[in-house]
Write a protein that binds this DNA or RNA. Structure first.
Length: 228
DNA sequence: GACCAGGCACATC
DNA sequence: GATGTGCATGGT
């Protein structure tokens, strides 16, 4: 897919969004997690699920001492599913998390750090080839667990940028990622914070039924914008 | 009680 | 290629 031609208006717009959200929230330190493995597991568990529910599941995993690749593979279906229950889709997610563990153990001795030594494009393809890991989950893992500068796109990203007129609401994942990576200079810290800020802004203000009062990005909408 | 949440795979046309 | 559906819990 051809990257879009860079334009200064889009770059300036995206830089302004970042400044505004950053001024409103300060550092998000997103993504939370004690280990790279925990972050990767969280990325799978948060698929179409509120983060508060993921936190409960991760706490369960820790309490049951299941938060390692070997422990997850050794656990019974019932033990793993019971721990994951609060995060929803728990049968699917138990399978997906296990598949990821198998891959990690087989190819990297269970070490996300060793996995991270692979070059970005190959590693991304490798993750996408795993059943249950789509583009957003792969990019969460790459950015936050592996330290690769990929811009994570999620529902909030698409919603915010389309409501602000930068893209069409139905833009695909890869075109949107290409747009962002073309107009925001690749930097690990910036990409991590930018996504964290989008998540926080999205949770607070950017629902399916929009509520823009108090949103740090509201002032960037034109005064006659339908959301205002 | 309805609606929603940071997806993904699969079936069907 | 586009569109629809199942998966499941917990908060508002």
């Amino acid at each position: 897919m051809n990257p879009p031609r860079p334009d200064r208006w889009t770059a300036a717009r995206l830089a302004d969004f970042y400044r505004r959200m950053s001024a409103h929230y300060g550092p998000t330190h997103w993504w939370p997690g004690d280990t790279h493995f925990e972050i990767a597991v969280g990325a799978i568990l948060t698929q179409n699920t509120a983060w508060t529910n993921v936190e409960k599941a991760i706490a369960n995993l820790k309490a049951a001492r299941l938060l390692s690749p070997k422990a997850m593979l050794a656990a019974s279906d019932d033990a793993l599913e019971t721990a994951l229950r609060p995060s929803g889709y728990f049968r699917q997610k138990a399978k997906r998390v296990r598949l990821f563990c198998e891959h990690l153990l087989k190819h990297y001795g269970g070490s996300p750090k060793r996995m991270s030594a692979r070059p970005l494009p190959e590693l991304r393809e490798e993750l996408l080839a795993l059943h249950g890991i789509g583009p957003e989950t792969a990019d969460d893992i790459l950015l936050y667990a592996c330290g690769k500068p990929v811009f994570v796109v999620d529902a909030y990203t698409r919603r915010i940028l389309s409501r602000h007129g930068l893209v069409e609401p139905n833009i695909g994942y890869e075109p949107l990622r290409a747009l962002l990576e073309t107009h925001v200079a690749p930097d690990l810290h910036t990409y991590r914070e930018y996504h964290g800020l989008i998540v926080w802004t999205g949770k607070d203000f950017c629902h399916t039924h929009p509520r823009c009062e108090g949103c740090p990005l509201a002032p960037t909408l034109r005064p006659d914008h339908p959301l205002l």
